[in-house]
């Protein structure tokens, strides 16, 4: 496969319908298609309830798609399960909005970060060394290895979550509102960290964010979602300066 021309991730006509008891079906994601090319960082923008996270959850295979297809490195992963799903997660990892809640509260940060390495068959000694290296890569000292999630700040915890995501050197990183719960000063540090790691490790990124300013700052291209549909796509700078869709205009006007 030619890495430069074929998309790393290809989403075609993806749809998610939630059945609701006694109420009409809810179409959370409606016929969404996009490609993410090698090394590209694609932003998905939209307000709460627009379907951004549902798209991410379908791609990460946390939930099943109702229809449509998801292709990663040319392989159809729409219905991946068992061993093939484990393979998907070796190539694709996720960073979530709430760092504390994304960790097992009873596991030390170092153990959580090293879990995927242990599962991949690395020896205990090597895991320890690698976790220490990963911690320093995200700007945390080795002192954080034995700490529990509740013993560190939100920003430190998110750095640890990034270390955990990159531990098995995935080719693709999905960030779902990864910096939304952080203070501005911490947010700008974490964004700088993500940018450096994506560049150094040659990762492709899907960056889900309701903050259009952040997407403009961070992403190469962007799509705007409303009510489960894509209403606009293009370079973030073009979208901000010359929005075509009324909803996008409203979104931009709302930024203070």
């Amino acid at each position: 496969m030619n890495k430069n021309n074929a998309p790393i991730l290809s989403v075609k006509n993806l749809t998610k319908v939630f059945k609701r008891h006694g109420q009409p079906d809810f179409i959370a994601v409606n016929d969404v298609s996009f490609d993410v090319m090698n090394g590209e960082c694609l932003g998905i923008i939209g307000e709460s309830g627009s379907g951004k996270t549902t798209v991410a959850n379908m791609i990460a295979r946390f939930i099943d798609a109702t229809s449509g297809s998801i292709t990663l490195f040319g392989e159809d992963i729409t219905h991946a399960k068992g061993e093939s799903l484990k393979n998907v997660w070796r190539k694709m990892q996720m960073v979530f909005q709430m760092p504390m809640e994304s960790f097992d509260p009873r596991m030390k940060l170092g153990e959580s970060i090293g879990e995927s390495l242990v599962n991949s068959g690395m020896s205990a000694g090597d895991v320890k060394n690698e976790v220490t290296r990963l911690l320093s890569l995200v700007g945390l000292s080795a002192e954080f290895y034995p700490r529990y999630p509740h013993e560190v700040s939100g920003g430190q915890c998110q750095r640890a979550a990034i270390a955990r995501a990159i531990a098995i050197r995935p080719a693709m990183l999905i960030c779902d509102e990864a910096t939304s719960a952080l203070d501005v000063t911490v947010q700008s540090e974490v964004i700088a960290l993500l940018r450096r790691l994506i560049h150094e490790m040659d990762m492709t990124c899907l960056f889900i964010c309701h903050d259009i300013a952040l997407v403009q700052h961070f992403c190469d291209s962007a799509i705007v979602m409303q009510h489960g549909k894509i209403v606009e796509r293009g370079k973030p700078g073009d979208i901000v300066r010359n929005p075509q869709d009324d909803y996008t205009k409203m979104l931009i006007d709302s930024v203070l």
Binding site: V184, T185, Q187, S188, I191, D211, I212, A213, L214, Q216, H217, G237, V240, R241, I252, V255
Partner: peptide
């Protein structure tokens, strides 16, 4: 530092 950390929209 606080003000410079704000990632604003470049309109």
């Amino acid at each position: 530092k606080l003000i410079s950390s704000v990632i604003g929209l470049k309109r």
